[in-house]
């Protein structure tokens, strides 16, 4: 195991976040605060409670997920895309390092960043509304697993993308709709039956449902099913990334 390599990749990826701290940590906080003002205050004043939870509080897990998913994907995809784009990836490829070590370095750093952002948003939310977390351990597990699996997903996108456009397309065209339609701001049973069925094919629904359950014990699907789906997604990403490295996909001719 090339521990030193993991250490430097992780360290310099974190350093990059630190140097762009405004973009890395502050902007997600600002956008979350804006969501709070718009959804929590404006809409929340009309919809009093959802399943017995005040609306402003109800949307906290969804908001966190929205930020976690977009940040994980953005960080991890950029982290690997950029060296590919500038050509500096040659060094990683010529180093005595295995794909697991590359993953631990890049994805580990991206996941850590998202985790920190998640905590910051949680603290910001606590500033706007009173928060109680019913199952802190479940909450942390969902938080960590989401950071890891979506950083992996971002890493895959970063490997796959061969131009900036592709790098942006997936987060914009796929992830944002999935999160918005995944019940960030409502429960599934508010939808018509047809849409309820359609929604069950949206993986983000399980994520948000499980995460919300760990806060308020209200959920669209059972928490075990949520956890199972998160693990399935994680496994899917791991297999994809393993195959990509194995075949040298988009990296080696």
């Amino acid at each position: 195991m090339n521990i030193q390599a993991i250490r430097v990749i992780y360290k310099y990826e974190m350093l990059r976040a630190w140097e762009t701290i405004l973009q890395s940590f502050i902007s997600p906080v600002i956008s979350t605060a804006l969501y709070f003002v718009v959804f929590g205050a404006a809409i929340g004043s009309r919809i009093q409670t959802v399943d017995g939870v005040p609306y402003g509080v109800f949307i906290v897990p969804g908001l966190m997920m929205l930020a976690l998913l977009t940040q994980s994907i953005a960080n991890a995809s950029f982290g690997i895309f950029f060296p590919k784009f500038t050509g500096t990836i040659y060094e990683v490829m010529s180093a005595p390092i295995s794909f697991i070590e590359i993953l631990l370095g890049y994805v580990g750093a991206a996941a850590t960043k998202s985790f920190i952002i998640g905590l910051i948003i949680l603290a910001t939310a606590g500033f706007f509304v009173p928060l109680e977390i019913a199952h802190p351990l479940w909450m942390l597990s969902f938080l960590i697993l989401t950071c890891i699996s979506f950083s992996l997903f971002g890493f895959i996108i970063g490997l796959w993308a061969d131009n900036f456009e592709k790098l942006q397309v997936i987060p914009m065209l796929v992830i944002t709709p999935l999160v918005f339609l995944g019940g960030s701001f409502y429960t599934i049973d508010m939808l018509s039956p047809v849409w309820q069925t359609v929604t069950l094919f949206n993986p983000v629904v399980y994520l948000i449902s499980g995460f919300r359950w760990s806060f308020f014990e209200v959920s669209d699907v059972s928490v075990e099913l949520s956890m199972f789906m998160v693990l399935v997604f994680l496994a899917g990403c791991l297999i994809t990334v393993w195959w990509m490295f194995k075949s040298g996909y988009r990296l080696k001719q």
Partner: peptide
Amino acid sequence: LGAFETVWNTLCFSRGLFG
């Protein structure tokens, strides 16, 4: 080469990468 790293950091990075 990257753009924003310092000379010192990029050397430390390379050394670590090679174990």
